[in-house]
Design a protein around this nucleic acid. Sequence first.
DNA 1: CGGAATCCTATCGGATACTG
DNA 2: CAGTATCCGATAGGATTCCG
Lengths: 119, 119
Amino acid sequence: MPSPTGRTLRPEADCPVETALAAVSGRWTTLVLRELLHADHSFGTLRERLPEISPKVLTERLDELRGRGLVERERLPGFPVRTRYALTDTGRALRPLLIELYRTGEVLRAGSPGTAATP
Amino acid sequence: MPSPTGRTLRPEADCPVETALAAVSGRWTTLVLRELLHADHSFGTLRERLPEISPKVLTERLDELRGRGLVERERLPGFPVRTRYALTDTGRALRPLLIELYRTGEVLRAGSPGTAATP
DNA sequence: CGGAATCCTATCGGATACTG
DNA sequence: CAGTATCCGATAGGATTCCG
């Protein structure tokens, strides 16, 4: 039986920490968010920006993000079909977290062995 | 071939965001960190605090965290053997991130459908 | 007590081909 | 263009048992 969230069930899933982690975890997720933080995109332009992601995984990521209310899809009229993916207000609320992730990642590197600081 | 980090290889693994995410992702990881942020622990007391974690997974998490320089292990003399796990300075640097994860998780919930706000 | 060694399963993610 | 449908290999993680 698939988990209710579409993501691996975690202990204490009711914890906000898990809620936030679920939103950004999964391969390609942060990169998709990064693209959408920068600008709205169609399915195709997202693929151009992330050339190595497969259509299946991109669909999965976008579905998850939509399911969490972080991304919205708009179908543009005309032919061929065009879509437009955009962050919702809630999705944009992830920006501070991504910044903090970046900042922390830099700190972790500075504190890791192998990074010569005072030789 | 196992990935060099011991964790699923991610695209743009050189990105600090991925570095930080790798440090906190994985089931039980944030809970282990939470316990260690609160106090030092032995293998056994960690198991008491997290009754559902298996010894194998706890070992894996502690090894990963040690491998990243976030946790240190001290073997206490005497018998039976006792160990003490503690966060390093680098490990304590994760606290702001965990706080931001908590904060963001709360925001995501407030912005999710189903949470009646203004009926 | 503090792990290590096995075995086993679910699921995640990649590749590919096809459709409305 | 914007996905869907399959198939498939690789892990992550759980349960259990054993060792120093």
